[in-house]
Write a protein that binds this DNA or RNA. Sequence first.
DNA 1: CGCCAAATTGATGTACATCAATTGGGGTGG
DNA 2: CCACCCCAATTGATGTACATCAATTTGGCG
Lengths: 200, 200
Amino acid sequence: MGGRRRWSKREFMYRTDEPARTVYKITKGIVAESRTLDDGRRQIIGIRTVGDLCGYPEHRGRYLFCAEALTEVEACAFDGEKFVAFIGRDIDLACALAEDVSDRLRRATRNLTVIGQLKSTERVAHFLVEIHELYVSRHICTHPLTLHLTRQEIADYLGLTLETVSRSFSRLRDMRLIALVGGDAVAILDEDRLSHIAKV
Amino acid sequence: MGGRRRWSKREFMYRTDEPARTVYKITKGIVAESRTLDDGRRQIIGIRTVGDLCGYPEHRGRYLFCAEALTEVEACAFDGEKFVAFIGRDIDLACALAEDVSDRLRRATRNLTVIGQLKSTERVAHFLVEIHELYVSRHICTHPLTLHLTRQEIADYLGLTLETVSRSFSRLRDMRLIALVGGDAVAILDEDRLSHIAKV
DNA sequence: CGCCAAATTGATGTACATCAATTGGGGTGG
DNA sequence: CCACCCCAATTGATGTACATCAATTTGGCG
């Protein structure tokens, strides 16, 4: 039904308020969906990867978010209107869509608690556990764990600054819960204690 | 299909991790869904009112959240399993469900940006605009606007403390954007400027 | 009228933001 | 292959918004 498309690292798949003509299903790579305020403040609202839908739901025919490729990305592209029409004719597809959106709602509300209630180090611990579980579930996990997000991006995901994220990493390292490997990878040394700090 | 049930103010409809046997559709009143951490910190993840579904989606057969009646509440109760079975047989219902969940996802991600990026007064301004729009859309709006949430509940919704919420109210009052009417109501004096402060 | 819970306001403390300097790792060209 | 560069990450010094602790004030209700 849909054509295949590719994006290279740091390329944008689409931007907020653009006409939402296409729905994507990621087949390779990792994507950050974000919203940016007029004054430049940015909130990354989700990390998407293989199997995830992107560009849905939209709002009044326009994309709600920006989608930036964090790695090289491949996706199937579906015409938005055909996609909706198709859903309307296939009950299994409609249920699968409801389940997919429900899952994202669960994750979004979990992150609401993370950002609203947790301290900086707890947030970073939660991020590491979450990203690890995500990558394991999609069979794209490495040892050590490659994050694919810069400190700034993690900060924009957790509602912190890059310096605070960096300090939290250092604190978790000093607690011997993780080891920092190069600039973009982390070895989780004590998953139980890390999860315990992550709270949610 | 479902039986009618009632709760009085401050009564809990269900709690996190309870077996999710029933899905509710609210027919009257206002409900706060929340998640509470072991140490007592609480995040209100959504305000639900007439027309909204409650108790869905669940996770592994258990409620994800607590639901507390903020006013007297009435709802239709559906058996959870029958509800899912019903959805699986009716394409229009399945699409309506996907649309309902999508709408909540939109609101949850918007609040992610509010909590992650906005300052305290911006958050309170956003809360007022959001609650006002919600009540208008469901035809339960009053003049002045009755909030039905205590300062503590607003704080738990916005990731702040009750004192900070109170100070933000005072600041918005001093800016002549709102007027405080009694303990539980607010008159919005300048919706445009209030929305502008709310940013999102 | 008087009680009590909630809201407001004030004083102080602290976690995180901000500003600034240094370090480190990956890639390129000599 | 090494030296250099550049960007990201780390670390340090300081500032500030919000949290915390505490004292009044307000308003809804019997």
